[in-house]
C-alpha cells in the first residue's frame, strides 16, 4: 500500500494502518536514532517517542510526499534534545541487575548489532570521529538517503553549505576508515 493511502487511513483512525506504518518505518527510525545516540536502549526509547509524536501529529501531515523527511526531522530533533538533556544532566546511577523488573533484555551493544559485519562496525566507529555536522550529513544523506534540499531544511543550514560539506564529510569518513584500518582495528 502507498504511503499516502496509509496516512489517510491512519488519519481516519484505522489501527491496522497505523500498525503497518509503524512496522514499515520502525527499523529506519531506530537506525537513525541509534546513529545519533550510539546506545541501543536510548535509541529504542527515542524511536518509541518518535512514533508517539508522529501519531499525535498525523493530522497536520497534509503533504504525504514529504512524509519521510518530516518524520526524519521529528526524529532528528528528538535525538538532539535527548543529547542536550543528557549532557546537561549526567545519567543516574545504574540500577543493579537484581533490582530490575523482569523485562526482556533488549539492550545490545554496537558490536552485537553489527556482529554480522565487522566492516560496518568499523564504519560506525569512524563515524564517531567526525564533527557533528559532518556526521549528521553522512547519517541523513548517505545512510538515510535524503536529498540535499531536505537535509538543509532539517538542519536549518544553507543549501550551499550542505553541498560543499557533503563531499568533505564523505572524504573525512573514508580517511577515518582508512586510518582505523591502518591501526589494525579493521581486523577486530
Amino acid at each position: 500500500m502507498e504511503i499516502a493511502q496509509l496516512i489517510e487511513r491512519c488519519q481516519k483512525g484505522d489501527e491496522l494502518a497505523w500498525e503497518a506504518l509503524v512496522r514499515q518505518y520502525q527499523s529506519r527510525i531506530y537506525g537513525l536514532a541509534y546513529h545519533y545516540l550510539g546506545n541501543a536502549e536510548d535509541a529504542r526509547d527515542l524511536a518509541q517517542e518518535v512514533f508517539v509524536r508522529l501519531y499525535q501529529s498525523l493530522g497536520i501531515c497534509t503533504d504525504t510526499g514529504t512524509f519521510v523527511p518530516w518524520m526524519m526531522r521529528i526524529a532528528r530533533n528528538l535525538c538532539i534534545d535527548h543529547i542536550r538533556r543528557k549532557k546537561a544532566r549526567p545519567p543516574a546511577e545504574d540500577v543493579s541487575v537484581e533490582e530490575r523488573p523482569n523485562l526482556p533484555d533488549q539492550s545490545r551493544t554496537p558490536e552485537e548489532l553489527y556482529a554480522a559485519d565487522k566492516r560496518k562496525r568499523l564504519i560506525y566507529r569512524a563515524l564517531q570521529t567526525l564533527t557533528s555536522l559532518n556526521r549528521e550529513i553522512i547519517i541523513l544523506k548517505e545512510i538515510q538517503g535524503l536529498s540535499l534540499e531536505e537535509i538543509a531544511s532539517i538542519l536549518s543550514v544553507p543549501l550551499g553549505t550542505i553541498k560543499s560539506r557533503s563531499h568533505r564529510a564523505r572524504l573525512e569518513l573514508a580517511q577515518a576508515v582508512v586510518a582505523l584500518t591502518g591501526n589494525g582495528e579493521g581486523a577486530a
Binding site: Q26, S27, Q106, R108, D117, I143, R170, L173
Partner: peptide, 18 residues
C-alpha cells in the same frame, strides 16, 4: 562506503518494539 552506508539505514529494534 557507497555500497555499505545505505544498508545501515535500518536496524532491527527487537521483537517487542512494535
Amino acid at each position: 562506503l557507497g555500497e555499505i552506508l545505505p544498508g545501515m539505514a535500518e536496524l532491527d529494534p527487537g521483537p517487542y518494539f512494535t
